[in-house]
């Protein structure tokens, strides 16, 4: 019988892979930000899962709360750079910035 945690890790690794491939494939900055969000969701799940598996949920929760706040600030800064670039170049395409 496979352990439930290993199956969860399997799904988390797939989620992380989706986010990473979105950052690598897409040339649109907005799409890349969404990829970043998906990756950080995978990390959040991984931390909570590890906490649950080692009977240490409260430490994992304390970390997860900080992670969510940091994620919000990072995305805000990223969006503000995106607006700035949109104002200067009139496009969100990374290739047009080069």
């Amino acid at each position: 019988m496979t352990n439930i945690f290993s199956i969860d890790w399997y799904f988390i690794s797939l989620l992380f892979f989706i986010g990473l491939s979105c950052i690598l494939i897409s040339k649109n900055m907005f799409k890349q930000l969404i990829g970043l969000e998906i990756m950080s969701k995978a990390c959040l799940l991984a931390v909570i899962l590890s906490g649950a598996a080692t009977n240490n949920v409260n430490l994992a929760q304390a970390i997860a709360i900080s992670m969510i706040l940091i994620e919000a600030i990072v995305i805000t800064v990223g969006l503000s750079i995106l607006i700035k670039i949109y104002k200067t170049t009139g496009s969100l395409d990374l290739r047009k910035l080069l």
Partner: peptide, 13 residues
């Protein structure tokens, strides 16, 4: 930094 977080989760696990 997300790689770092994932590594941290594995260490915790």
């Amino acid at each position: 930094s997300l790689f770092i977080l994932l590594a941290m989760a594995i260490l915790l696990f």
